[in-house]
Design a protein around this nucleic acid. Sequence first.
DNA 1: ATGGTGGTCCAACCA
Length: 260
Amino acid sequence: MRIATWNVNGIRPRMEQIKRLLDEQYLDVLCMQEVKIAEDIFPHDFFEQLGYGHRAVVSQKANHGVAIVSRLPFDADWRQVFWDKDDKRHVAVRFGDLMLHNFYMPAGGDKPDTDVNEKFAHKLGFYDHLIDWTPENHKASEKVLFMGDFNIAPLETDVWNHKKLVKSVGHSPGETERWSKLKQALDFVDLPRRDLSDDQSLFTWWGYRYPLAFAKDYGWRLDHAFATQPLNQDIRDVQVLKDTRSWEKPSDHIPIIVEL
DNA sequence: ATGGTGGTCCAACCA
């Protein structure tokens, strides 16, 4: 079973790229973030024709929005609102004893200061709620997979320049501490780093604003996949698909694929 | 210290 996560940055301008990813990678399940489309006009027919007959969509007009599309039927779907702000950032599905959660965490605005930046307060509040909620709803002995765009680059080697970026939103101490607490909540394995040393850099996002960002490898690791220990036993391979960032009309994020 | 791009939707917000 091959499960992927990808922040597509708008599902409508990314239809060709999504089809290409599904075809080339033989995916069974795709978790998407930032679909940016009203729920009632989600392109269900497109996925139906590609063989993804099972879908769980939590989205809205213009911004945010998540979806899970699957070839395999799931037994149940679940949506949770965190920090009392229902801007379509979570959907989950259950395949037998496997619980799969898809998250799109708040980005957090420009300044890492909760006094002047409400978006940063929202980001920390969302994390705090999730850190409490996770062990209330799951056990470390269950098979749980958290995937998505968590908008935090936790390690020094998860950004292209730690010293330059340590006071930036996405890599500040208040954020990286919360990422670690979330990881500890169910004794999760950080899958993309499972077989990679912490001194090796690993990125999943290169911004559009500076056009040379990808060429110069000015990246951040914002997208994550966490597995509980029992699930980790079942995981055969983990891939980060850097190549997709050089496709025509790319998303600014790249996919992570987990094979069970 | 600043601005660079892209998506949504048509002024301005989000990232």
